[in-house]
Design a protein around this nucleic acid. Structure first.
Lengths: 127, 127
DNA sequence: TCAAATAAGACTAATTTAGTCCAACATAAC
DNA sequence: GTTATGTTGGACTAAATTAGTCTTATTTGA
């Protein structure tokens, strides 16, 4: 996640220029293969576009202010949640405790507040 | 963490009564030994007091509204943080990326906001 | 054709964490 | 004083997660 944020900050600063994985990897000492995977995920979620071949690289596909951290976390780390049962709460995830869970409602409430916080934050806050 | 919240909610509802680990363990189907460890941690951090021996058990040592979730998370899960470098940010923890981290400041800011959110929440919100 | 890119899958090693097992120690009640 | 019922706490296991590596394929400009 940190690597994704650093990379996206770099893209935002590059202002629509094409940047290669190698460039970012060297600049911030991030293992190349690892960074590549992250950029590929970001592409899959339409945060970046990619150009293959020589002179290729990645490019921002959205304005920094339109990339919020909640979306990013889902893209990079997969479903996130305060507790496991909150991970898929919007896709009908189930609680392993079932009827034994006595704190469903207040935990959901906290989850919502955290998500709101992360949705308010965007890459613009990082440049 | 979920187990701690469920247990504390139970204590809050029991209203200063003495409750045993076994009781809570059976009531919510939480493995006994695991729950015991959690209650012991809560005792260590003065959230609960304990009475050993027959007729023993645990008891709330604070008012529910005085037990905030930020404190709890630190007590149960140890130092928490958005990123690893934020884990010990108040005890002078160091960033493994060192000079290569380009997002120190905005990440710290988010960390602060999350902590504020968790500090505003207390066990009272769970009963 | 070659060099410089992305794309992607399989693998490893280290860490974390839920949960278990077991052996004390404390105390009220009989 | 013995016993049943508690807490205390350490060592251990198993499973999952995750950072990072390795390797191979594909794309494309010069």
């Amino acid at each position: 996640m940190e690597y994704a944020l650093m990379a996206l900050k770099h893209f935002a600063a590059a202002d629509n220029g094409i940047v290669t994985a190698k460039e970012i990897s060297e600049r911030y000492k991030i293992p190349y293969e690892l960074l590549s995977k992250i950029l590929q995920k970001l592409k899959r979620d339409n945060v970046l576009t990619s150009i293959q071949g020589t002179k290729g690289g990645y490019q921002l596909n959205k304005k920094p202010e339109d990339i919020d951290i909640h979306f990013l976390m889902n893209a990079i780390d997969g479903d996130i949640g305060l507790t496991e049962c909150q991970c898929n709460h919007n896709t009908g995830g189930k609680c392993t405790l079932n009827d034994n869970c006595s704190i469903k409602e207040p935990v959901s409430q906290m989850q919502r507040e955290i998500e709101e916080l992360f949705k308010r934050k965007t890459i613009l806050d990082f440049v």
